[in-house]
Amino acid sequence: MDITSDIHSQHISRQFNHELEELKTHLMAMGGLVEKQVQDAVNSLLDADSSLAERVVDNDRAVNDMQIKIDDECTRVLARRQPAASDLRLVLAVIRAASDLERIGDEASKIARNAIELIENDSGSRGFVEVRIISEHVRRMMRDSLTSFARFDTDLALQIVEEDQKVDSEYQSAMRSLMTFMMEDARSISPVLGIMWILRALERVGDHANNLAEYVVYLVKGLDIRHTNPDDLDEEVGDR
């Protein structure tokens, strides 16, 4: 049975409604912060703004704190309410999503640290085009994955799974062109490696956004698609 986004506000216990709504609200707040962290980290590189990059590194602690808070709330709900069916799936999806958001936060922090090094070494703007393209793509995926979570929108979630494949191929192509730079000019190895780490982090952000989308399908349809071949997804999810 598919569920809708208002299902968790229909319990006889209003306190339980409130607790579940709080979980979703706090997850969305964490998502908003993490989204901004990724955006700031990329902008710090593109705008050569090392103070912004430092703020991103500092803010990672706030992301970690939010994950701990959400985990605590989920533990309390599990212990006190013993949720079942869609309520149980919501709690599990929130725990998993918070873990992926925390990892996205770590990736943002990695991007910012590499940006600081590149800015300090005045490494030029080689690879910025690739960073810009992939970052826009993964940020859109992140935004959509959070929206699909908020709206319980599995159609949007499935689009994100498809998008992730595109990001993976963009990433491979960027890697190839950056390798060419390194082969052509040995002096570019160090700065280009920095950009490669940043691209790698962005590609991982895409993977985590993809995970969030998979949790939405689990939450709404009770279907675990984590290890399903993307080509079989429409058929598998459509059947339910």
Partner: peptide, 18 residues
């Protein structure tokens, strides 16, 4: 039944919904 019931009536009962 307790993780993914097929019908809304079951879902409503086991999760304590109106």
């Amino acid at each position: 039944l307790f993780t993914n019931p097929r019908l809304a009536r079951t879902e409503n009962y086991i999760t304590g919904r109106m």
